[in-house]
């Protein structure tokens, strides 16, 4: 399970995620109240879903009173990438870890928390995850609350610059490894190029961001594992 130091380490590593989440969920809070949700409903959605694209896209369906099946399908498609991440994390935890902590870790499978957890050196301890998840979820809920309550009185300049936090953190996670391992650098560059193509090319740009991430990840990671399979060691 880990010890108190793992928990503290998780909390510390969650600070950049928390900052980035406040910026993004602040925007969500504003949009949610504009869509007619109460402050309580907006925060409840954030704390139970903990996902950006899924929540933003749900608002339109709520406003238009879409069917539940449509809502379920939309969330499934947008969030399918978490299945890939959850699979990767299953290899990162102790194989004899019981169900309960697994269910706890599962709550926090988001792009950002996954990124930090997956590349954490060594075995992933549940207590480290709990530290990471609690502070991140706090930021996500807090940002939603502030956006819903005071969206129009906060200085936009401050909110705007916080948007960089998450991406800065991603680069800090992947670049040190990419610098020393050529295949990783090739994966990083190919994924960025492919994602840019998907973002701007006609037809391809109509694919939702959730699917885009799945497609790019699967193609690039599959190609890399064919061309440069990792050595048979315990890493």
């Amino acid at each position: 399970m880990g010890n108190f130091n793992d928990f503290k380490k998780g909390i510390k590593d969650a600070i950049p995620i928390c900052l980035g989440y406040i910026a993004v969920s602040f925007a969500f809070g504003i949009q949610a109240t504009e869509a007619g949700l109460s402050v309580f409903q907006a925060v409840l959605m954030s704390l139970t879903n903990l996902t950006s694209a899924g929540q933003f896209s749900s608002l339109e369906l709520i406003v238009t009173q879409a069917g539940f099946a449509e809502m379920a399908l939309l969330q499934f498609v947008i969030n399918l990438r978490y299945m890939l991440m959850s699979t990767a994390l299953s290899q990162k935890i102790a194989s004899k870890l019981p169900t309960f902590p697994r269910l706890g870790i599962a709550y926090g499978v988001t792009d950002e928390i996954f990124g930090v957890s997956a590349l954490y050196k060594g075995e992933l301890k549940p207590l480290y995850s709990y530290g990471l998840i609690s502070i991140s979820a706090f930021g996500w809920g807090m940002g939603t609350f502030l956006g819903a309550v005071a969206g129009h009185i906060m200085p936009q300049r401050l909110i705007s610059c916080l948007g960089l936090a998450i991406y800065g953190m991603f680069l800090a996670i992947i670049l040190p490894e990419a610098k020393v391992k050529k295949p990783v650098m090739a994966v990083v560059i190919s994924a960025m190029v492919m994602s840019t193509i998907f973002n701007y090319a006609p037809v391809l740009s109509s694919i939702s961001s959730g699917f885009r991430i799945i497609i790019v990840t699967v193609i690039v990671a599959a190609a890399a594992s064919f061309i440069a399979p990792i050595k048979e060691t315990n890493n």
């Binding site: 890939l84 990124g115 960025m192 994602s195 991430i213 890399a224």
Partner: peptide, 23 residues
């Protein structure tokens, strides 16, 4: 080993794809 390699590369590909051009 193929699946292990695939899962090893997944986070790098995912984070890179999410970062650029969104940043």
């Amino acid at each position: 080993n193929y699946i292990k390699s695939f899962l090893y590369y997944v986070p790098y590909a995912t984070l890179a794809a999410m970062t650029f051009p969104a940043i």
